[in-house]
Design a protein around this nucleic acid. Structure first.
Lengths: 163, 163
DNA sequence: TATTGTTATACTCTATAACTATA
DNA sequence: TATAGTTATAGAGTATAACAATA
């Protein structure tokens, strides 16, 4: 359900206008600038594509991590996604209210919850991941498998301080 | 001036915790997910580093583009940065109030402004860009020049639909 | 004394609509 | 009729603080 708007100066859209000026500025070789711009495009495209499944980039990521046995704690979700634990509460609340994940008491620590995907959550994730892959494919048009793998590998180093 | 907080579960910090779970989830080869995570790290680190110059990632980018003669219109700034024109107003207002950029009437179109960096703005940009480069360097620790250039090249394709 | 999940709040960022002055 | 800049506002995301239950 994207917006019913004309999208004149569409915010999260790809720019083709200012590339020449960027190239003449100090931003030309600035990895952070290009990272931020590319991510804005990715999140925008991702959100638009995932609404068809009632998800957004964030909730998709939570669901994806909750689908890995034996299920993360909310604390781990926060650390992995770079969020504050208080933000995870709302995300899990939403997914739980729709029957996509469950909070199970951690048997080894009664303070903690283990967040696990339900059968329905797993099915939705399977569908949504197909959409997600297709969206990446479309936005990456012209990038071959080698380049895509290289991109992900380099991004992981920044995001997770690892190769 | 970063926050005076303990940073227990520091939000925009690099995750080293959940990498193993990510690797076992559908997010493992998801370029969008890693793009979003890496950008969050980059924007966070960038903002923290640039506050020393009274700038943030956004205002730094505006200043950088305004420093390229003959200066962009606000419309062009919006398109290049993927922002709505209404957001550019506040960014330019802030920089102008601090004497870093000027709004000059476009001689060929009385509706439009041309945003140009002042002498002070140019000097601040020069200082800030040194900080920015050092920050990228630090976060990219372990990435060689080739890899960094490859990363930027691939990000440009996503951000600007070009190579 | 420290940690997990939670609630609350303020601030930034994003998205949309509408107005004005020009073209 | 369309476009540049502006104002306004609501929603999403980010950042901090504090509290109850548990370790």
């Amino acid at each position: 359900m994207p917006s019913p708007r004309a999208r004149d100066a569409a915010p999260s859209a790809r720019a083709s206008v200012g590339a020449a000026r960027v190239a003449r500025s100090v931003l030309d070789d600035d990895a952070f600038f290009h990272l931020a711009r590319a991510a804005a495009v990715a999140i925008g495209e991702g959100n638009a594509a995932l609404t068809e499944h009632g998800l957004r980039s964030r909730s998709y990521s939570v669901l994806a991590l909750a689908a890995v046995e034996p299920g993360p704690s909310q604390r781990e979700l926060a650390a992995t996604l770079g969020l504050d634990p208080s933000q995870v509460v709302a995300l899990v609340d939403d997914l739980q209210s729709r029957g996509l994940v469950e909070r199970r008491p951690d048997p080894s620590d009664r303070r903690a919850n283990v967040v696990v995907a339900t059968e329905a959550g797993g099915q939705l994730l399977a569908d949504a991941s197909v959409t997600a892959r297709a969206t990446v494919e479309r936005v990456h048009a012209g990038m071959n498998d080698d380049e895509r793998a290289t991109l992900v590998r380099l991004l992981k180093r920044i995001a997770f301080a690892a190769d």
